[in-house]
């Protein structure tokens, strides 16, 4: 199969969606001639013109509001938060308006919009351009939250998100944009709310999101040489969460580790952990469910500090080894 990057996969998904459905349009800062801060929308202005690739002033609430208003009147907008951190400036429109409108109106409105957000650390962009804020949105009824970890998933989930008749928060990772992988040229969808077992193993279930999926796979390779086999599950959709495969896996391995980049306190790991405890997997646990996550710190500028602030491959190896060997 053809290999393209995560960014190219997203771009192809956007292009194919817009070719297929003229209700789809893109709106965001510098997405036109500039091609998006990270280049995701490069070239789309030439193909679709400024009516459908809409460059905005620096107005995040306006972008989100445009998505709410356009979607409730029959369009299918895809908004972009240039850095996911900037979503704080659009919270009211997303959380108070977009997420709740259908419910407040008695189920009589549809809001098919997607907000794409470039998240994550590792680029030296410091505390206001590096956060992982996905769990804030997991806490909001009315939203769906998606986090692709590979080029294949990026395209398939984006196409699903655009076809979805609900607001979807689509968290991309800046460090994944250049990651290459097999991606079919034709349109295909990956259902929202379906997790994926990306590696099978018998000793420990690792539930990882976004960039922590490739890092966990790296860790699994290293541990495999020691005879430790990790089972790695990528929820892909954080909300609604596909619980069953995680529960089944934990019943099989008896051990679970959640890995994410967002800070640990109040993070998605707590949710996964609690879900496991409340399930029939509880009786099969041989060890406490552990969380490996970002330190409770704003992302530091200094390269070494930044690296240290979020889980790296060696941290996953070490934590997984401890759990399997019952030392913690």
């Amino acid at each position: 199969m053809r290999e393209i990057s995560y960014m190219e996969a997203l771009r192809e998904g956007l292009r194919q969606s817009m070719e297929k459905d003229d209700r789809v349009f893109l709106i965001g800062e510098d997405i036109g001639i500039y091609g998006g801060a990270f280049g995701v929308s490069a070239g789309l202005l030439d193909q679709f013109g400024p009516e459908r690739i809409i460059d905005t002033p620096i107005s995040e609430a306006g972008i989100a509001g445009a998505c709410v208003g356009a979607s409730v009147t029959g369009m299918r907008p895809v908004g972009e938060m240039q850095f996911s951190d900037f979503v704080v400036l659009a919270m009211e429109q997303i959380v108070m308006q977009g997420a709740k409108m259908r419910f407040m109106f008695g189920g009589k409105a549809e809001l098919p919009f997607v907000i794409r957000l470039a998240g994550g650390s590792g680029t030296g962009a410091a505390a206001q351009h590096s956060e992982s804020l996905e769990n804030w949105f997991v806490h909001v009824p009315g939203l769906k939250v998606v986090m692709p970890s590979s080029p294949y998933d990026a395209k398939g989930l984006l196409l699903s998100a655009i076809e979805e008749n609900n607001p979807v928060m689509f968290f991309e990772h800046k460090l994944l944009y250049k990651m290459k992988g097999d991606v079919p040229e034709e349109m295909y969808t990956i259902p929202i709310g379906k997790s994926k077992i990306v590696r099978e193993g018998k000793d420990l279930t690792v539930i990882a999101t976004s960039i922590m999926v490739p890092r966990s796979l790296e860790a699994a390779k290293i541990l495999s040489k020691e005879g430790i086999e990790l089972e790695v599950i990528d929820p892909r959709t954080l909300k609604p969460l596909d619980e069953e495969p995680i529960i089944k896996s934990v019943i099989k391995t008896g051990k679970a580790l959640v890995v994410h980049e967002a800070v640990k306190t109040g993070g998605f790991g707590g949710e996964i952990s609690a879900m496991i405890m409340e399930s029939e997997a509880f009786d099969f646990l041989d060890a406490p469910v552990r969380r490996l996550a970002g330190l409770d710190v704003p992302i530091p500028y200094n390269r070494n500090l930044e690296y240290h602030a979020v889980p790296q491959v060696e941290n996953i190896v070490e934590e997984a080894r401890k759990i399997v060997q019952n030392i913690y």
Binding site: F25, I27, E51, R52, I54, A61, G62, A64, G65, A66, C67, V68, G69, A70, S71, V72, T73, G74, M75, P77, E92, Q93, M96, Q97
Partner: peptide, 19 residues
């Protein structure tokens, strides 16, 4: 939400313009 509908009107306006 006070002023909550103001950004929404941008979207409704865009929708009308595109359609």
């Amino acid at each position: 939400i006070v002023a909550g509908n103001l950004p929404i009107s941008v979207g409704v306006g865009l929708s009308i313009k595109i359609r």
